[in-house]
C-alpha cells in the first residue's frame, strides 16, 4: 500500500488558455485512478492557485452564458465536492485587490464539506514540499 501525493499548481489566468481547466480535470481524475492501481494504493491531489492563477477562483463566472462552457468556478466546486485540498495564495489575491469575498469558497449547493483555503504563500510552499511530484499549469 502506497500513496503518491501530487501538487497541481495553477499559475495561469482562466479562459486565456486551457491550462487551468486541465489542471482541475487532471486533479479530479485522482478520484478514479484506483482502476489502474493495486488495492490500497492511492494518488492524492492538492491544488494551489498562485500568481495570475488566483483569477480562476473569481466567483459568479458566466462562462456558460458567454462561451457555452462549464466555468472554472464549477470545476473548483467539483474539486471541493471530492474533498480535494484547494489553496489560494493570499498575497496574490491582494495584488488584484481581491479578498475572500470575491472568490468561490464553498460548494454547499453540491453538498461539499470542505472549503477553499486562502493562505499565505508560505503555506502553499509547505504544501508543495510535502508532495511527491508537482505539476505546474
Amino acid at each position: 500500500m502506497a500513496t503518491t501525493k501530487l501538487g497541481f499548481v495553477v499559475q495561469r489566468p482562466p479562459y486565456k488558455s486551457e491550462n487551468p481547466k486541465l489542471a482541475l480535470t487532471h486533479a479530479i481524475s485522482s478520484q478514479s485512478v484506483e482502476i489502474y492501481l493495486e488495492d490500497g494504493d492511492l494518488v492524492t491531489a492538492d491544488i494551489a492557485f498562485v500568481g495570475d492563477g488566483v483569477l480562476n477562483c473569481k466567483k459568479d463566472q458566466k462562462a456558460m452564458e458567454h462561451y457555452g462552457l462549464s466555468s472554472t468556478e464549477s470545476h473548483i466546486k467539483m474539486s471541493l465536492l471530492l474533498d480535494l485540498n484547494v489553496l489560494v495564495c493570499k498575497e496574490d489575491l491582494e495584488r488584484f485587490g481581491m479578498t475572500e469575498n470575491d472568490i468561490v469558497i464553498d460548494a454547499e449547493e453540491f453538498g461539499a464539506d470542505v472549503e477553499v483555503k486562502v493562505v499565505p504563500y508560505d503555506e502553499i510552499a509547505k504544501m508543495m514540499e510535502e508532495m511527491n511530484h508537482l505539476l505546474f499549469f
Binding site: 503518491t4 481524475s29 485522482s30 478514479s32 485512478v33 482502476i35 489502474y36 494504493d41 494518488v43 511530484h133
Partner: peptide, 13 residues
C-alpha cells in the same frame, strides 16, 4: 485513455 492514466503512470514513476 482518460486523465487518470497519467496519474496512475506518475504513481510509480
Amino acid at each position: 485513455f482518460s486523465m487518470d492514466w497519467y496519474l496512475a503512470s506518475i504513481f510509480d514513476a
